[in-house]
Amino acid sequence: MGTTQLETVPEPKYWHLRTVLSEALDSEFSVGEILPNERDLAARFGVARATLRQALEQLELEGRLQRRRGVGTTVAPPRVGVAVGTEQHAWPGAEGDAWEPADCATAAPPAAVAGMLETRKDEQVHTVRRSLVTNGQPVAAELLYVPLSSVPASAAADAASGAARAHAVLQGLRHLDLEGQDRAVELGSARAEDAKELDRLPGAPVLVVTTRFFARGRTAAVSVATYRADTCRLTFADSGGVEIHHDAS
C-alpha cells in the first residue's frame, strides 16, 4: 500500500466553506440569530447546495449551529461547561443546582449501577429523572439512582409521584453527611429515550458523566448524566487529576 503525502491532498470544498462560515458567524451574527436560507447562502458563497449542507452539518456537529424544526438554522450559544475533577462536593438538588427534577419512580437499576451501589440486581431503588436546560435548549438528561437505605420509601411517601416525589428524595439525600464523590466521563451515543429528551437523533454523540456520592462509608447515590456533545465542554479544576483507562480488547 502506497503512502499519501498530506500536503498534496487538496482541502475539501465543504471544509474550506466551513472555515469561511465559522468566521462569518463570529463577525456577522449573534447568538440565536437565524441564518439565511440555503439557497441564499449557497449563492452568496458560490457553492453547490450539497457542499453548503456538508459545511452546515459540520458546524452543527461542532456546536456552532442549531437546526430547529419550523425555525431554521440559528447560531448556537456558547457550550455549557461540565466540571470534572472539581473539589466542590454537593448533593444533587443543593443550592445553585440548575437541574430540574421531572419525575421519580421506584425500580431495579441497570446491572452496572447496581454493582456500584452494591445492591442486588433485582433490588428496587429510587430513580430520579432530571433535566438541564440552557437558553431554552435541553443540554443534558440525568438519572439519579438512590437506594431505599439512603432515603427510605417512607420519606417520599407523602409525594405520590412526579416532580414532588423527586424533590422529596433529593431533600432526603441532603440530610446525609456527604463524605465525597467521584466522576467518570465517557463518549457515547444517544439512546432513543435520551435522544428524544435532548432533541437529538438516536446515535448522536453524547458525553456520559457517571458520579458516585459517598455517605456513611458507602455509595449513597449514583448519577448517570447524558450531555449533548455538541453543546458541552469539559472543565477541570487546577488540582483535579485525570485518569486514562484503556480497556483490554
Rank of each mutant, 00 (worst) to 15 (best):
M1K: 10
Q5L: 14
L6A: 15
L6F: 05
P12Q: 01
L17E: 04
T19E: 09
L21N: 07
L21H: 09
A24K: 14
D26F: 07
E28I: 06
E28S: 14
S30V: 13
S30G: 14
E38M: 11
L41D: 05
F45V: 04
G46L: 05
V47C: 08
V47Y: 08
A55N: 09
L56N: 03
Q58L: 08
E62N: 09
E62A: 10
E62M: 02
G63Q: 06
R64V: 01
V71N: 14
R79A: 08
G85C: 10
T86Q: 13
H89T: 06
G93F: 01
W99S: 00
T106K: 07
T106R: 07
K121W: 02
T127N: 01
T127W: 00
R129Q: 15
R129K: 03
R130P: 00
S131G: 13
N135I: 02
P138F: 13
E142I: 00
L143D: 07
Y145T: 00
Y145G: 00
Y145H: 07
A160S: 13
S161Y: 11
H167I: 08
L170T: 02
Q171P: 03
G172Y: 03
R174C: 05
R174N: 03
L176V: 12
E179G: 05
D182E: 10
A184K: 06
E186R: 14
R191N: 13
E193T: 12
E193C: 04
A195M: 15
A195W: 07
E197H: 07
D199K: 15
P202T: 15
L207S: 05
T210D: 10
T211Q: 05
F214W: 13
R216M: 14
T219K: 06
A221P: 03
S223W: 08
S223Y: 04
V224G: 00
V224T: 11
T226F: 04
R228C: 05
R228F: 01
A237W: 08
S239P: 03
V242R: 12
A248E: 12
